[in-house]
């Protein structure tokens, strides 16, 4: 676990050293803030002291931002050869993958923590359903973890960052919206299946405060699946070189 943490800290440093962290934070807060407070069906228009608008916007912004964070994680290391440097040290492939996963998750966590002033502001405007706010944040964290895991997997299959970015978006797109659309346009058991596969079903259920094992199982499966496949891709060098 200590090794994982060392990698996590190093990756977090590199986010902040390369400015990508700042850009991500500013863009995320800017976007979500703009739509929460100023534009469209914002808080004032709805005249309701809640963060539903923020959660809906963040759900979309994270979908685009996360692949841009994860795309370099393994692809860049492969391309520059630093993967060899890293993996010939006393760490396992699994520690490298989880270390990188945690670093991304922490950065998203920081972004979400910085949005807490929105919560405080809304609170000052009227009575807030605190439980709904916290489950909303929980939902965002679970969704983020899922996309990070998918992004890591995408980054593990290529040494080209753009390919990694597009692959992550492509895979993410299915869970983000396509399964949802398919669920709507089909009937019966098929619709049920698509609905279960759709991330938005589970996200909405979590932010409504309805968290059951089906949701948790769904998120955990996707997160673990992404990590396991990333690890498998890394260790493929043992077979084909």
């Amino acid at each position: 676990m200590k090794k994982v943490w060392i990698i996590t800290i190093k990756e977090l440093h590199s986010f902040f050293d390369s400015l990508s962290a700042y850009i991500m934070l500013v863009a995320f807060l800017g976007f979500s803030g703009f739509f929460t407070w100023l534009y469209g069906s914002d808080v004032f228009l709805r005249n309701q002291a809640d963060l539903q608008v923020f959660f809906a916007i963040a759900y979309w912004t994270l979908f685009f931002f996360i692949p841009s964070l994860t795309m370099k994680m393994l692809a860049e290391e492969k391309k520059s050869g630093t993967l060899e440097l890293l993996l010939t040290k006393a760490v396992t492939d699994w520690q490298v993958v989880t270390g990188k996963f945690l670093a991304c998750l922490l950065l998203v966590g920081i972004a979400l923590a910085l949005s807490l002033p929105y919560y405080i502001t809304v609170w000052s405007l009227g009575p807030v359903d605190h439980y709904a706010v916290w489950t909303g944040y929980l939902g965002l964290i679970l969704v983020s973890a899922t996309y990070i895991s998918i992004g890591l997997f995408a980054s593990s299959i290529t040494s080209n960052q753009i390919v990694a970015f597009l692959t992550a978006l492509f895979i993410g797109m299915f869970f983000h919206i396509i399964f949802d659309v398919l669920a709507g346009s089909s009937t019966g058991a098929l619709s049920e299946v698509f609905s279960y596969l759709s991330l938005s079903t589970h996200f909405e259920s979590v932010i409504r405060g309805v968290i059951d094992t089906r949701n948790i199982l769904y998120f955990l499966t996707l997160i673990l699946g992404g990590l396991v496949f990333s690890e498998i891709n890394l260790s493929k060098r043992n077979i084909i070189g």
């Binding site: 090794k3 990698i7 440093h13 590199s14 050293d17 050869g81 630093t82 060899e84 440097l85 760490v91």
Partner: peptide, 23 residues
């Protein structure tokens, strides 16, 4: 390693510290 790939955007001190910790 052959091409001596290193983390280009880390300082000498930081990269040595990272490797030392991980080892």
């Amino acid at each position: 390693p052959e091409h001596n790939a290193l983390y280009q955007d880390m300082t000498v001190m930081d990269s040595l510290r990272f490797v030392a910790q991980i080892q």
